[in-house]
Each structure stands twice: as structure tokens, then as C-alpha cells.
Simulated assay, not measured.
Amino acid sequence: MLELLLALWPLFALIVAGYYLRRWEFPNEAFWPGAERLNYFILFPALLFSSLATAPLDNPALPRLGLAVMLALGIAWLALLLLRRLRGWRAARFGAFTQGALRFNTYLGLAAVASLFGQEGLTLAALMLALMVPTVNVLSVWSLTAERGVSARSLLLPILKNPLILACFGGALVNFSGLGLPGGTGRLLGLLAAASLPLGLFCVGAALKPEQLGGEIPALGWNSLLRLLAMPALAWAVAYALHLPATESTVLVLFFALPTAPTAYVLTRQLGGDSQLMAGLITLQTLLAAASLPLVLMLLAL
């Protein structure tokens, strides 16, 4: 338990620091959008690319891990569709609830995996991201536009242009080609990757909006419990059924126990969803994850 807390508390300390830095307007308000873009388009892809380019991809558990990811997401999606039918949610709210339940904070997830499992964990996480990011993005866009329809091009084009997806597939191609990262390329990507996680956690904190927590406490509460407790329980059940090894199971459960992604707010606003509800979900889940994430991992270790 102590080792787990020692691995996780610095991550949440960076999130808190990011919140107060933005609140104190340091360095200034214009810094944060640029920092997010730098991380999203350059630093974070460098981490994913380098992790997969040099990873041992002959792990026999990897196909089962991929199956576990898709199976858990599929079960969760069917449950959300049933809830929508029972509750009669409009797309604006259903899209926010879907993202609150299915999307995940990638920066926090990779930082936690790196602290707990090092390079081996980062490799597993990068492979999971290659499956989870496009799937969750498609489901998020569809849920926000279900009432007015959306074309296949609108669903697929953002995925094909997503720098995280491109980095994952690029790294895998380099790995299978046997080229490796020669001539100092690995060192360059390593330097860029080293900056991605702390900057990403600062940006997570900067995106928090505690003022959005009022008004819809029941909705915020049940969706947060679904994301932070029910989703990791589902992931554990799937991992158990598929007999995943311990490390793969833990990484899977960890990613399903993460709070929702701050970028969900941007997508919700762009597609006419309930952005205030989405902002509240992002903030509450991130705050609660400081307690729920260590709890889930501790129970997993028993």
C-alpha cells in the first residue's frame, strides 16, 4: 500500500500544481492552450512512438489483452444504450454521460503505468491506446450526434488524423520492420517523451473547473461512480475470464479506473452537448480519482 501511494501521490501533486498555476495566471492564460497543443501533437506522440518502436511485441498475452479491451468497452457501451432507452436522455446529455463513462485521462494513465511498471507497462498501455482511442472517439461522437445523424467520414476522419493513433501505428511499423531507432533517434524521442507526462499532468490540473460542480450532484455522482468503480470492476471480470497475466490485468483495470479526459469538454462544446455537465464530470472524477485509483489498485493486489 505504501509503495502504491508513493508511486501515485506525485502525479496528483502535479495536477494540483497545474490547477493553482492557472488560477494564479502563471506564466499567463495564453500559455495553457499552447502547452496542450505541444503535448498533444509532439511530446505525447513521441512517447507512444518510442515505446512501441522498441517494444517486444511477441508477448503471447497481447491478443487476449486486445480482446479484453474491446469486450469491456462493448459491454459498457451496451449498458449505456440500455440506460439511455430507460431514461430517455437526449443526445446532449447522453453524449456527456457516455464520455464520462468511457473516456479516460491518457496523461494520468501513462504516468501511473510508468511509475508502477516502467517501460513494460508503457508498452502495454500504448498497445491498449491503439485500440481504445479510436473506439472511444467513435462512440463519443456518435452519442453526441445520435439524434441528427453523422456520416462515416465525420466519424473516421478525426481518427485517421489523430496524432496519438498515428504515433502508435508508426511505432508498431518501425518495430515490425526491424529498423529500430538508430543514430541517436531513440535518445531524441526519449528527451521529448520525458517532458510529456509532467506537462500533461500540469495541463490536466489547469483544465479543472470546480465552479461547475453545483447543480447536478446526482448525475455527477452516479456517472463518477460508474467510471471510477464499476468500470474497473468490469475490466477485472473480463481479465479474470480471459486469464490475463497479472501485469496485463493490472494495466487494463488501471485504464478503466481513470477519470474521464479533459478533452471531452472540447468535443462536447463542438458538437452541441451539455458542456456544463461535462465540465463537472471532468472535475469531480479527477478529484475523486485521487482516492479511488489507489483503492482500486490496492484491492487488485489482494
Score class of each variant (00 low, 15 high):
residue 37 R to I: 12
residue 38 L to Y: 09
residue 38 L to D: 08
residue 39 N to M: 04
residue 40 Y to V: 08
residue 41 F to L: 13
residue 42 I to G: 01
residue 43 L to E: 02
residue 45 P to Q: 07
residue 45 P to H: 07
residue 47 L to E: 06
residue 48 L to V: 12
residue 49 F to E: 02
residue 50 S to N: 09
residue 50 S to V: 07
residue 51 S to E: 15
residue 52 L to W: 13
residue 52 L to C: 08
residue 54 T to R: 14
residue 54 T to N: 10
residue 54 T to F: 03
residue 54 T to S: 14
residue 54 T to M: 10
residue 55 A to D: 05
residue 55 A to S: 13
residue 56 P to T: 02
residue 56 P to H: 13
residue 56 P to F: 08
residue 58 D to S: 15
residue 59 N to Q: 11
residue 60 P to M: 13
residue 60 P to N: 08
residue 61 A to E: 15
residue 61 A to M: 11
residue 61 A to G: 11
residue 62 L to R: 05
residue 62 L to G: 04
residue 62 L to D: 09
residue 63 P to Q: 10
residue 65 L to P: 06
residue 66 G to V: 07
residue 67 L to R: 15
residue 68 A to D: 01
residue 69 V to C: 13
residue 69 V to I: 09
residue 73 L to E: 04
residue 73 L to D: 03
residue 75 I to P: 01
residue 75 I to S: 06
residue 76 A to W: 00
residue 78 L to W: 05
residue 78 L to T: 07
residue 79 A to Y: 01
residue 80 L to E: 06
residue 80 L to D: 04
residue 84 R to G: 12
residue 84 R to K: 15
residue 85 R to E: 14
residue 85 R to Q: 13
residue 85 R to H: 13
residue 88 G to S: 04
residue 88 G to V: 02
residue 89 W to M: 04
residue 89 W to L: 14
residue 90 R to K: 11
residue 91 A to Q: 03
residue 92 A to M: 09
residue 96 A to Q: 11
residue 96 A to F: 08
residue 97 F to T: 06
residue 98 T to A: 15
residue 98 T to N: 15
residue 99 Q to T: 09
residue 100 G to Q: 01
residue 100 G to P: 02
residue 102 L to D: 10
residue 102 L to F: 08
residue 104 F to L: 12
residue 107 Y to S: 12
residue 111 A to I: 00
residue 111 A to P: 06
residue 111 A to T: 00
residue 112 A to G: 11
residue 112 A to L: 13
residue 112 A to C: 09
residue 113 V to W: 07
residue 118 G to P: 09
residue 119 Q to N: 10
residue 122 L to P: 02
residue 124 L to R: 00
residue 127 L to P: 01
residue 129 L to H: 05
residue 130 A to N: 05
residue 130 A to H: 06
residue 133 V to E: 01
residue 136 V to S: 02
residue 137 N to K: 03
residue 138 V to K: 12
residue 138 V to H: 09
residue 139 L to S: 09
residue 140 S to P: 03
residue 140 S to R: 04
residue 140 S to K: 07
residue 142 W to Q: 12
residue 142 W to C: 12
residue 142 W to V: 15
residue 143 S to K: 03
residue 144 L to D: 06
residue 145 T to P: 13
residue 147 E to G: 11
residue 147 E to I: 05
